[in-house]
């Protein structure tokens, strides 16, 4: 399982409108950032150099891990994608 190839293995209908929106300032001040390693889809990346969090919702598996591990409540929005969008499991 190569996480770089997630789009080859799992189907998505990507919504242009992100279903998760972060206040990055909170992430910069976070002492844990458990989201970065815990997210099974590697949607969160932290740049130590730039002291900056990047989040991409495209390959989100809608598992809910970040919603639970974030103890700073950095989300200005956390909901599931609009109906019909997001991950589409075929046989799991």
């Amino acid at each position: 399982m190569n996480i770089d190839e997630i789009f080859d293995n799992t189907s998505f209908t990507i919504d242009r409108e992100a279903h998760i929106v972060l206040n990055y300032e909170i992430c910069t001040g976070c002492d844990n950032r458990g989201c970065v390693n815990s997210c099974p889809a590697r949607c969160y990346t932290w740049s130590q150099e730039e002291q900056k969090m990047t989040f991409v919702h495209d390959g989100c598996l809608e598992c809910g891990t970040c919603y639970v591990v974030c103890h700073k409540n950095a989300f200005t929005r956390w909901r599931y994608p609009r109906g019909g969008f997001g991950v589409a499991y075929r046989m799991t």
Binding site: M1, I3, N32, G34, N37, P40, T65, V68
Partner: peptide
């Protein structure tokens, strides 16, 4: 368990790969 994973520094996909 999320309480354990979030402080482990390990990622689910790397652990799954190692398991496989």
């Amino acid at each position: 368990h999320l309480a354990s994973l979030r402080t482990s520094g390990k990622t689910p996909y790397d652990l799954l790969n190692a398991f496989m």
